[in-house]
Design a protein around this nucleic acid. Structure first.
Lengths: 236, 236
DNA sequence: CTTGATAAGTGTAAAAAATACACTTTTGTG
DNA sequence: CACAAAAGTGTATTTTTTACACTTATCAAG
């Protein structure tokens, strides 16, 4: 049977809204959090939504994303990758709208995270205690996908490091893994494996709150990129 | 320093074109091919482009993709996943345009692949012998990303099967791996590993062109899905 | 200044997984 | 009926992963 042919379609090209939305992971108090913003206006007034907004005429989706995070929340992003594009016809009741969603990690820092313009309406949520109802658009789905990606990716790429400051101890790093994967990894095997990668550069030791001081490391970014080209794995 | 605040932006929402483009992999004559279409009109007249087109008002990106493949090429897709969304401001010289790109696999079949409307201007390219110049838009980049994904994904998900007919022999399957990964896997180890997954159901044996007849199998899709939920790996 | 509590750091043995490797079986063809 | 072609199978070796317990450095309290 020959493939169905249809008469030439009229060439009117539909125009749609295209936005970016980001799921931002931050590590604080030994747990992972994401920020959500309570929408102030319809549609979905008083529902939780992701930070984001429309892409401007002259910017790439990625720079729209970075701009938004900087403007609205004053966040400096450590790691950013595209997550997925959502575009169900009815996802925005007003008009056909696409959301290019992003997966972002920010580094732990001394200063508490600021809130930019959205201080009143935004809130950090523990990723295991997200709201169950009251989400705007399909943002709950986006968040679920991002969390799945975080868990999956942690096992084969060193993204855990992006959640920590530039200098970090192996105990902290292990804690990240345990918190995100829900595991209780063996400290000895963890250290062994991480050290065997040759990607950790010892920097200095710092006193630990109680107990033996711990060795800090930084990640050898350059060498990692190089090894990655040659096809390396980083399994957990 | 407080985050920079800007004056409220005018709320005009820019509208853009949103299309889908697909990189379709097919296995023929012991090699992997993708179809490209020579564009008949400006912009990029006489340049190679991916099958695709604008998303209609009432359809999801995925159904736009499936519709296009069915309409234009009469192809039945075995596996489809979103690849990446491209949206650089200058990727289309006419107007701001986004492309949601898809990664597709089609099963080997008895009948030669048909061409639908595009028979004159379309051509299957061996993935190691793609044109080096004369690409439309950013389609070369899309194809490169798709090939990278194909190679990466083959190692941890059983997508190789989607390139074969429902019944297949382990020799054929191994050939897929060898061709795509550029390896020469050991036949014994390959069989051992595949059989140990418990996901292959023997169906019947068929005579081989010369030599011992070979056992055909089908893939236990249902059981695979179930195991996947529980977190399985399928390493190569 | 001694003791106790806390967290960091380290090595080895056992188990599991991945790899390397060669011959036998079944069929079609000459 | 001998030969060529492709399919099929088992075992030993190496590598990787896992399991597991004691020592060390520091701080705080007595």
């Amino acid at each position: 049977m020959p493939p169905s042919r249809k008469a030439a379609r009229p060439t009117e090209l539909s125009s749609f809204i295209v936005s970016v939305d980001s799921v931002i992971f931050a590590y604080m108090n030994q747990a992972v959090y994401i920020p959500l913003i309570m929408r102030a206006v319809e549609p979905f007034q008083n529902c939780w939504s992701l930070p984001g907004g429309p892409i401007l005429e002259k910017e790439t989706p990625e720079s729209a994303c970075l701009r938004k995070l900087e403007e609205d929340m004053g966040l400096k992003v450590e790691y950013l990758e595209q997550l997925y594009t959502f575009g169900a016809p009815d996802r925005d009741p007003r008009k056909r709208a696409f959301s290019i969603s992003y997966f972002a990690l920010i580094a732990e820092s001394e200063e508490p995270l600021s809130w930019g313009q959205d201080s009143r309406t935004a809130q950090w949520f523990h990723i295991d205690q997200l709201p169950e109802v009251g989400w705007a658009f399909d943002h709950q789905q986006i968040v679920q996908m991002a969390i799945k990606r975080l868990r999956a990716k942690l096992s084969y790429e060193p993204i855990g490091l992006s959640l920590l400051a530039e200098e970090f101890s192996l105990s902290e790093l292990k804690r990240i893994y345990d918190v995100i994967l829900g595991t209780e990894l063996d400290r000895r095997n963890f250290q062994k494996k991480l050290k065997s990668t040759g990607l950790l550069i010892p920097t200095r030791t710092v006193p630990s709150p109680r107990g033996k001081p711990s060795q800090l490391y930084r990640f050898d970014e350059a060498r990692y990129k190089q090894l990655k080209e040659e096809g390396l794995s980083f399994g957990f």
